[in-house]
Write a protein that binds this DNA or RNA. Sequence first.
RNA 1: CGGGACGUGGCGCAGUUUGGUAGCGCACCGGGCUGGGGAUCCGGUGGUCGCAGGUUCAAAUCCUGUCGUCCCGACCA
Length: 566
Amino acid sequence: MRISDSFIPTLRDDPAEAEIVSHKLMARAGLVRKSAAGFYTWLPLGWRVLRKVENIVREEMDRAGCLELLMPILQPKELWEATGRWAAYGHEMMRVTDRHGREFCLGPTHEEMITTVAKELRSYKDLPKCLYQIQAKFRDEIRPRFGVMRSREFVMKDAYSFHTDEASLQKTYDRMSEAYSRIVERCGLTYRSVKAAGGLIGGAVSEEFMVLAETGEDVVIYCPECDYAANLDTATSRWHTRAPDEAGLPIAKKATPDKRSIKEVSEFLDVEPRSLVKTLIFRAGDKVVAALVPGDKELNPEKLATITGVGEVELFSEEDFAARADLVSGFVGPVGLDAVEIIADHSLKSMRNFITGANEAGFHLLNVNVETDFSVDVWADLVYAQVGESCSQCDAGRLEQMRGIEVGHIFQLGTKYSELLDAQYVDENSESHPFVMGCYGVGVSRVVAAAIEQRSDESGIIWPPALAPYDAQLITLGKDDSVKDEADKLYASLATDFDILYDDRSVSAGIKFKDADLIGLPFQLIIGKRFAETRQVEVKIRATGERAELSVEELPGWMRETREGL
RNA sequence: CGGGACGUGGCGCAGUUUGGUAGCGCACCGGGCUGGGGAUCCGGUGGUCGCAGGUUCAAAUCCUGUCGUCCCGACCA
């Protein structure tokens, strides 16, 4: 492609609205333009990159035995009401009404839709099947940001598998996990796969593929000694396995006037926060629960929601407390708290003689012990894992953390959707069963941003060769017609084997070099006056800045070889 | 939705405090010169200052409302 024939509007300055490097560079290099918050036009150069990612994803899906199809973006309300998600999705779902008053949503995902399509898989002989599509998805994010990283319309590859049983699902799930690893590797990205939470999609088993980057919105907790890695939301640690070694002391009431928070009480009594137990009152659906965690730990509401079997738990407000005389805000404790369910973090098993609220304004209890003073209804993992704690998997490593960009997420769904939507197959005995399902997503447009987030420098983008919109940028220098002729010839000869972006503009050398660095193709092929004498093409490798002089004949082979290492 | 900031040619910004009828750099167009890291000179095009009301002889500037955008929190590929 000749630049003079192309449409690559590069910008000299960062757009004021862009915050992170990928957003700035995507705008500056002429890859995308914003239309409204969270909506982007993919300009020709950006579109080429997006298609490269799409094709890698498509190849790996096909290799894994998946079948591509395309479903409508608009989906009828009734379908979503059947699974309860018309309400559950809330404001995140974009909705439209047709001229007859019938309501639709712009698909945020397609579990409902694909499940109705899969109803045509009637026999166990038709299973397993894995279907996928690559399509725009719509989620009315509370706060779209970082360009295409978190946008309201984005390109996603979503795959769904259908099985007779869990074993078959596990097989496909494992194969998809491998395919996902291949995808991110082929895109040239450094990543880590981590254990994750199901969220709105649901499902017990789930794994995220995180591209590692400082600006990532997710925190990954990992063990340097083994392969344990998990999203902060689900990460566990084993700091609590110590056996209690202290003898229990008799419980005692202590006046703590106006001291409510862990900080206030621990300072007032001159003890470490870890000597206290926090009693947090939550509303979980219809019931009220008390969650007990050590004073120095932070409760993870997602874990509590999972344990109580609700989508979301809500911390008691002052109004809630006002309505319950038995719960004293700031002085709640588990002793004598029989009216609500008590869920305690496992770590309390190893705590002795701790301090809690006395359920009486202005008082706390000292030397409280589990069993002797109160009983726990449910033991669970309730807290966020913290850096420095022991790995729950190998026990040897101390946990560390890093930031990541979630580009892929795979789930084992089970029969949630097939049951609600009445999607069944018949087995060998003519008995009907709901499909066992899995679903698998890749944020295709997000991969583009993630790649730039991981690979760029002061001058611009450094594309992994697999994602680069073109293989090389051919640059002519000087206004000599002879240079132009030579460059034309080289362009024509390379065109059969490579995608070349040919900067044939009659602008100054500086502009050409700056634009080439900004656009970030793996190679820059430079032809100036010298070429007529030396017959050597000057090549600059964008990633390393190294330069080489090569004859026209050896150039193709050299490029093929060199790009492998980039 | 809560907290903060901002809307002035395509992009980046100044001007707003103290009202007087819009300016700079880049980009763009024509021409000269230059041609290995965003060169330079001359001459141009382009803005009802987000929108709607209000105050005033006079509003980018003051007031009210509204829309949009960005940042920090809860959501997610």
